[in-house]
């Protein structure tokens, strides 16, 4: 079943084209790596799928519905930066998510907080940056969404935390849901991916199954990435 469909998706900033004519289809039940060097257009694509950026041309559909409240209720999005009000308590943010997202599982969220020894009564600004990232990930992964979009979820945390984050992602998503993970730390996530999307200079370079690509090239995804995006 097609979960996400992008048709001729283009984004221009003045004369600069950030993303050009992206045609993409994502089926449910897959973990997809959105890979590309810095500035290749990964975040721009994600922002247009989640509706925080308007495309210059082209369309995005989630379950055949254009971007809007309905599509947003099906996407659980983790941006590449802190986006919560730092003066809010963790508990208040949990309540906020529970109120707005019908699919938010607060039991699961509190369980994860307890495992990480994060006090729900703490204000976000009193937590370290890494812990704030973990709180955001807990919020996102505690939803039973159809599509999880994670923008650089492991880029700003230490290797030990990376393992925890990847474990959290794998153990919390529904088998029928899909996960789109944007990163340039390929070796860390290669083993969990079903598909990869390579984006280069705003153009879709490759969209293929991980196993197919490995067999075809006889190389790891990390090696293929390094060859494709060699400076």
């Amino acid at each position: 079943m097609t979960l996400l469909k992008c048709k001729e998706l283009t984004k221009k900033y003045g004369n600069h084209t950030a993303l050009s004519g992206i045609n993409l289809q994502i089926e449910s039940g897959h973990i997809i790596g959105l890979l590309g060097p810095n500035g290749s257009g990964k975040t721009t694509l994600i922002k247009m799928i989640t509706g925080v950026l308007a495309p210059t041309s082209g369309t995005v559909c989630i379950n055949d519905k254009p971007v809007g409240p309905e599509s947003k209720s099906q996407i659980s999005y983790l941006p590449d930066h802190t986006y919560l009000n730092p003066s809010m308590r963790v508990r208040d943010i949990m309540d906020f998510f529970e109120d707005f997202y019908e699919d938010f599982d607060s039991m699961r969220a509190y369980d994860m907080l307890a495992k990480l020894q994060i006090n729900p009564n703490c204000k976000l600004k009193t937590l370290s940056k890494g812990t704030q990232e973990k709180v955001q990930l807990i919020l996102v992964m505690s939803r039973r969404a159809k599509l999880y979009i994670l923008d650089e979820p492991i880029a700003r945390v230490d290797p030990a935390a990376r393992d925890y984050i990847l474990d959290t992602i794998l153990s919390n998503y529904d088998e029928t849901a899909s996960i789109l993970i944007s990163t340039h730390l390929i070796s860390d996530i290669e083993n969990i991916l079903d598909e990869v999307i390579f984006i280069q200079n705003g153009i879709l370079h490759t969209h293929a199954g991980v196993d197919d690509l490995r067999q075809k090239e006889h190389k790891s995804i990390d090696t293929i990435f390094r060859e494709v995006f060699k400076c």
Partner: peptide, 13 residues
Amino acid sequence: TAEGYLFHTLPVT
């Protein structure tokens, strides 16, 4: 600002 990523991705118009 950054908080817009929370509010504009809520299932509201």
